[in-house]
Design a protein around this nucleic acid. Structure first.
Lengths: 252, 252
DNA sequence: GTCAATTGTCTAGATAAATATACATTTGAG
DNA sequence: CTCAAATGTATATTTATCTAGACAATTGAC
């Protein structure tokens, strides 16, 4: 071992400023319920010892968390924890954006970003069981909870069956209701592929992430009740605000 | 607008060093297939213009990517893109580590890290449907593919039923075979919770990740064929090497 | 071999982040 | 009111990151 004293998870060679590492660390700790009893963070001195850094570095971290709306510092009182927010998004045969967040006392909302026409690329065509190059309607949407963006989705629908579904979405603000308006009363999730990576610039902008922010990328296929694929989606969830739950109801 | 020219996705006020932002950005671009034709990155000068930074900053980013084994720079030739190898790990009712990677022509392997006894914390107890504080056998394992670590798992087994299962694992190197050796011939996955975050120091060490590396965290519950929970696992997958596939067979 | 294109190395200086101290201000308990 | 415990503000110094420019070393094309 070197003579360097090792402290909780701060890395001075990572290219990430200490205040940001500490802010990320505290955010995770809050999510894990570490300070739930006190309802507030330990004092700046205590935190600076815990992380092995100067008090001002801790202050910079807290300032960042304040900026995110997670905590609120007040002279003489301490730093109050405002809320613990990581939504649980169910992934099941009946996965839908708005109903998925229903039980969590939040206001779910979908926003229209853009739509257009495109020919299906290889991977999308395979998933939708159509020939590569088949015309598709594309739709890009933003999912919000209490006004905070949580997901950015890019959808493909076979144009032969769903031409104009984007117009329905602009009115209905829901894929489920858009399907219903076009005569498809019900549909099921048949496959979901999940990976994680760093968000690119555009994704960071829509999801209001800081550089280095992580997204969960879910590639999903929905089908009608006959099993014919009706939708291919690539949805990016803000990993700091959402976890995905693969549950029992996938079994029936 | 200010006189500052805006360049592709670098943010100078984020607390993340430019070289790391650029490394992350290039990694994402490689994943999206941006340089697939050339098979190599643009020159350092071209990249420094693209990101609006000095050539040396780009060099630092490339050095980081080289360290991750994603690219290889060679004087006079350029910076070659190595191969993007991301294993697909199926998540289904019959999820098992070794058979999951079977079809991908790789040599799967599990290694024993440590084991012990512990009382079940709240969340584990709820998942295993036992009282908090019930004795459990704990087991920590490393999953490898072709000798490269891909997952780090921490398991809980109810001690009343599975005392000594860690000893079986040390011999068998497989949870499935350890269960079999203790009289449990078959089991099924009943729930999986997936999220993503930055790896901590210890995780980076076992999974051989660079600082800033991402892990997919899967919280899973397995049960016997009567539906009685037999195992709770927290598995960390190296997000650069693994994607999780939630497929149709979850339905039967 | 010559040449252009590219990565590798070196030195120096400017900017941002982190440390070290000191003291002011706000709050709630007693 | 007084005091202890916090956060807020200020200044100076050290360290890490980024910029700038010059030149060496390697490679492949001609």
């Amino acid at each position: 071992m070197t003579g360097t004293k090792k402290h909780a998870g701060v890395d001075r060679t990572s290219g990430v400023a200490l205040w940001r590492q500490i802010a990320d660390d505290i955010r995770v700790a809050i999510g894990a319920g570490e300070f739930r009893e006190a309802g507030k963070l330990p004092g700046e001195m205590a935190l600076s010892e815990r992380f092995g850094v100067n008090r001002h570095t801790v202050r910079a971290a807290i300032a960042a968390l304040q900026n995110e709306g997670i905590v609120r510092a007040k002279a003489g009182r301490g730093t109050e924890i405002l809320e613990d927010i990581r939504l649980k998004m169910p992934i099941s045969r009946r996965t839908r954006f708005s109903s998925g967040l229903g039980g969590q006392a939040r206001r779910p909302e979908s926003a229209y970003i853009a739509s257009g026409e495109a020919t299906a690329p290889e991977d999308v065509a395979v998933a939708l069981r159509i020939a590569p190059g088949t015309p598709c309607v594309t739709l890009e949407t933003l999912g919000l909870a209490d006004g905070i963006p949580v997901s950015l989705a890019f959808h493909y629908f076979p144009a032969a069956r769903f031409a104009g579904i984007d117009e329905h979405f602009r009115r209905e603000r829901s894929v489920t209701r858009s399907f219903a308006a076009m005569g498809l009363a019900d549909y099921v999730r048949i496959s979901t592929d999940i990976s994680a990576r760093h968000a690119d610039e555009r994704e960071r902008e829509w999801l209001r992430l800081t550089p280095g922010g992580i997204v969960l990328e879910a590639l999903a296929v929905n089908a009608d009740l006959e099993g014919v694929p009706v939708q291919y989606s690539r949805t990016l969830f803000s990993a700091g605000r959402v976890s995905l739950h693969v549950g029992n109801d996938m079994e029936l």
